[in-house]
Design a protein around this nucleic acid. Structure first.
Lengths: 371, 371
DNA sequence: GTGAAAGCGCTAACAC
DNA sequence: GTGTTAGCGCTTTCAC
């Protein structure tokens, strides 16, 4: 606060308008005047007042992100911090600010969107955690503001989406297990009102079915550690229990591994485990957690880039597709125990005992594995 | 955007000024006029344009939070999401927005503070992750904006702080272990340039010393899972190894438990483990992780409340103290193995089993468990 | 108690 | 090309 455009204008001996043009690299001033103005601006330590710019240009120079999740679940999800960091790398360069709302109380989410939109506080939104038949789409379309969605909604949406195919990661995971010789592969699914909870379940089921395996070992959870444990116990307690479990996130997988061990079974000796997220801790457990790695930070970057483009050049943009989520094989997956063990011999040679790692790695040679 | 104060004024047959007074519950209009105005405002779906309010009142109706951390570490820290959710409950009521910046690139942090302050984008800051001799204090004092710090900086600061005594939690943890009979208690410390990394180390050392135990088993880390594992292995590999480890956060404790098990030792049979944070997953592992619970959400609430008060009534406010962090005893702590077992009898009586914990759960029958 | 009017700091349309 | 000027929507001082 303090030095205004008028001060700069006076110092440079020009009008306010000229200063505005100069500062925004816009035609309307000669090169000579421009650099003189810039010099004085710098000299005086001028920094534009966003409120004023906003008011006259009716831009907020801010974008909104509303997160509606239980704080406990949020706290164990490695996604958002990295995603936000990714957004930030782009936004900071554009001098755009991120307005974050964490909505916990009922109704707070919708209020948050309205408040930000109606008050003119943001120029656009990032829409994450898409839900099945998500009513926020209509809500946001009503505001007329540009929006970018994380993955494509299942209903109609006029907003561009930044897509990550999580299907591929889950499919690779299941096929990796099949290649190891597993036949009884369970899935600890996320909430089915979230499209990514649903798509991961579908990917698991489709892959199982495609390989002629029965997709009966599934338990639906809320993504929390507690229900991950409960689901693990429930699935392992069934008649013909799984020899491998694919979890919809790492938190449940980690809690699940612990529950499996507590039940007297070993990972991966008796039960193989695959997570989803590649949380920072995943590689530091023993055994390391085989999991599906997404790139939340790059997702954030790309999302911000698309959103900025939508804000500047109109909201109707094509979808952008990111590299698919990829399987990271670590120690928590191995051939199934005992009787089934021989099947590994018949498995395609490419399915080496894992322990690979590398950045992305490990295509699991899917299709071929059959006995 | 759309309906302005002028529209409301016209509808109600009054001047813009009157509408402004009415909307802000301020003297200057009669009750009758006020309610008529409010009625029309509501009718028209009026929602004030923040930019305009900001410009004329030179308030941003926003507060800033700048987080400078490696996204990987951030992603495994349950603190921020809950803390932010807590902030939000208060801010939303006041119609104040949270501007979040995650600074990853070098220099980005300072730039972020300056950008938000100089541009008039925020009315105040929350300062977290305080560092030893934190230069942000001076930086922010320069801006003249109100600030609330999370815990008291080690250097001079004119800002009010919201205090949580993490010392008490660590002390309780150590005394809980001592009461169980442990003598060789190690500490896997956080970064020593963070005041909370340092204060937890100090609390551990002071408690050890106070009980006449040697505080030699310490390893300093970066709070990451990887270095938690390394520190665990290093400490357990020493000549006279620890029978218990107190970790500066839960992520390291969880990774540490896994490393201990991988090394052929059992938790808590051979080594007891205590974490810090009470991450959502902590209670769902087997054994459950004994840990120190803070209340990040309430911390956020209180911080927001103090900050709002500072913004509205001047920045020089007294510190506010929260309930101290408290120990949550679960299954990961037990008496030390074999030969040392008798030692508990000689332990000072003052070190009661401390299975405190209020609301929830799981006093692990500590004191009684003996063979 | 009420209304008129002067800005807040900037942008952008318009004359020069 | 350059400078002047009228707002953006609201708050707030000042007459009435």
């Amino acid at each position: 606060m303090g030095v205004t455009i008028a001060d700069v204008a006076r110092a440079a001996g020009v009008s306010k308008g000229a200063v505005s043009y100069a500062l925004n690299n816009r035609p309307g001033v000669s090169e000579a005047t421009r650099s003189r103005i810039l010099h004085h601006a710098h000299e005086l330590g001028f920094s534009p007042n966003v409120q004023a710019r906003s008011l006259s240009s009716s831009r907020a120079f801010a974008v909104g992100l509303v997160i509606a999740r239980d704080p406990g679940l949020l706290g164990s999800d490695p996604f958002f911090p990295a995603f936000i960091a990714g957004l930030e790398t782009v936004l900071a360069d554009e001098d755009v600010t991120l307005v974050l709302t964490v909505a916990t109380r009922p109704g707070a989410e919708e209020r948050a969107y309205r408040r930000l939109a109606d008050g003119g506080r943001v120029d656009g939104f990032v829409l994450s955690d898409l839900r099945c038949t998500d009513n926020r789409i209509a809500l946001l379309e009503e505001t007329g503001l540009p929006v970018v969605t994380l993955n494509r909604p299942d209903g109609p949406s006029s907003f561009p989406a930044v897509l990550v195919d999580d299907t591929a990661g889950v499919r690779d995971a299941v096929e990796h297990l099949i290649a190891l010789g597993h036949r009884r592969i369970g899935h600890v699914a996320g909430p089915q009102d979230l499209i990514h909870g649903r798509s991961r379940l579908r990917a698991w089921r489709d892959t199982m079915t495609a390989h002629g395996l029965e997709a009966d070992l599934v338990a639906v959870t809320d993504f929390g550690a507690g229900s991950g444990v409960a689901a693990t116990e429930e699935l392992l307690g069934r008649g013909d229990p799984p020899t491998a479990l694919v979890y919809a996130n790492d938190v449940m997988a980690i809690a699940g591994m612990s529950a499996i061990a507590a039940g007297g079974r070993s990972v991966p000796g008796d039960v193989s485990v695959v997570g989803y997220d590649d949380a920072p801790i995943a590689g530091h457990l023993t055994p390391g957690l085989t999991t599906v790695a997404t790139s939340p930070m790059r997702w954030g970057e790309l999302t911000a880039r698309v959103l900025m483009r939508a804000i500047e050049h109109g909201p109707r943009l094509p979808d952008v597709t990111m590299a698919p989520a990829s399987l990271v094989v670590r120690g928590s997956t191995a051939p199934p125990p005992g009787p089934t063990a021989h099947s590994r011999l018949t498995a395609p040679s490419s399915t080496a005992p894992s322990s690979s790692r590398s950045s992305s790695s490990s295509r699991s040679s899917s299709s071929t594995a059959r006995e």
